[in-house]
Design a protein around this nucleic acid. Structure first.
Lengths: 241, 241
DNA sequence: TCAAAAGTGTTCAGGGTACACCCATGG
DNA sequence: CCATGGGTGTACCCTGAACACTTTTGA
């Protein structure tokens, strides 16, 4: 065997997005433990080496299940990160030694996007600490996780543009059009006037108006709507063509 | 080390598209050699295991250089294929044994898209046989190469829609608007009337009309145009918004 | 009564679509 | 003179953008 050919480990890492109603995108980070390193400097993206009998999609599903306790989260593979030096930091090598009981000096990862309602209960079977972090306040992370997050933002925008319906995964079951608007603005570069947005959204057959309206707001209460995926599938409208 | 974690080989495979003027998309396939198997059943996608000090993009660039002799071909990573059974066919295992002098029972690949003018001279330093195959007449291929090709078609359409300029990599330096139209039709699902296409294209500042026109055609000769990437970069028009 | 946001209606401009019409060339 | 495709001009329509106006609610 030509020793120049790589024989290595493969992992998946997941960037899970959530949306809070201070209009911020958030992502889920977990805690890792490395001796002598302050805890607050040891956040990372959730991820795992893949098993020998696992496809990468299966591994990502497993990571998400272990992370949140939620089965069948939406997910999308977006890029393989394979910089030969991505795992060459000494702290990262030490952590891999502790985590996997083996010396690993190179690791290639396949990055996934996923989405989660930010108020969904997180029931991790693997991690002690799972926290939402605003996307603009992500600390320095190990490996190339900051780079992965940067690229995931570009990817999630493409995703929304190609399939508008995934945006509803981030919203409560009942939502106002303003909430949808704020989320859309945080995710898309296409700017749109809220009045016109309102008119457009409410014209879609798959956006179902409910009888319920907001309470305790200091202005006219907004109506709640729900999303009907069945009707959406039949019509397949993009928000903007 | 948990033996369940994969420790494996990683390869890149490249789907190189070309366009002939019978309006067909073509892809480049190479010949592999496995004993006792008819030659015509041994086509495959060009690819290689990655080296231990190589990023996947570098490996894809190397594969493309070894395949065509062309430096710096456009390329785009599009998906990691990691089905545990993708390399379990006995013929494929035999071939890997011969090619890499090692028993390999699983291999994960990162698939790339690339583009090449179909009349460009192919100077392969690695393969004896490199041939264009019409996309609708691709034979049965080893591993999951047929699946990779199927998915690459979806990917190249997205690519054109997000960056119209890459379409010119597939055209001769001088091209008629009809040629561009045929290529666009083969690549995009968005249908457009040729007259309106003509009007639109010729209105773009980065499509430069030349003095030269077609010869030996049994109708009014069409003008040749060229593409100016510098002007394109300044304007950044999508064909259809 | 005022501020703030919901929700509706109207107008305008730009671009896509359809199509008519003329031009150039070979047969 | 006809078929074929090149190339231009025009008219229509839809949609997005801007914005005015009314409604509702709490302070």
């Amino acid at each position: 065997m030509n020793p120049n050919f790589i024989h290595t480990y493969l992992s998946v890492d997941c960037v899970v997005f959530g949306f809070d109603f201070e209009n911020k995108l958030n992502i889920l980070l977990v805690q890792r433990h490395v001796e002598d390193i302050p805890v607050e400097q040891q956040k990372k993206l959730p991820g795992s080496l893949i098993y020998s009998n696992e496809d990468v999609d299966d591994a990502a599903n497993r990571v998400l299940l272990e992370l949140t306790g939620i089965k069948k989260m939406v997910l999308k593979q977006f890029k393989c990160f394979a910089d030969p030096n991505r795992a060459s930091n000494q702290n990262d090598i030490r952590w891999m030694g502790e985590e996997y009981k083996h010396n690993i000096d190179r690791i290639i990862t396949v990055a996934y996007l996923s989405l989660c309602r930010i108020d969904h209960k997180i029931n991790s079977t693997k991690y002690d600490t799972v926290d939402w972090h605003p996307i603009d306040k992500v600390p320095q992370l190990p490996f190339d996780h900051n780079k992965i997050i940067d690229e995931s933002l570009i990817e999630i925008r493409k995703w929304i543009d190609s399939d508008f319906s995934i945006i509803f995964v981030l919203l409560p079951k009942k939502f106002t059009i303003r909430q949808l608007y704020q989320l859309y603005n945080a995710l898309s570069e296409k700017k749109i006037d809220i009045k016109n947005f309102h008119k457009k959204i409410s014209s879609f057959s798959y956006i179902i108006p409910l009888d319920e309206i907001e309470t305790n707001v200091s202005h006219r209460a907004a109506r709640y709507y729900k999303f009907d995926p069945k009707i959406y599938k039949k019509t397949q409208n993009k928000l903007i063509k």
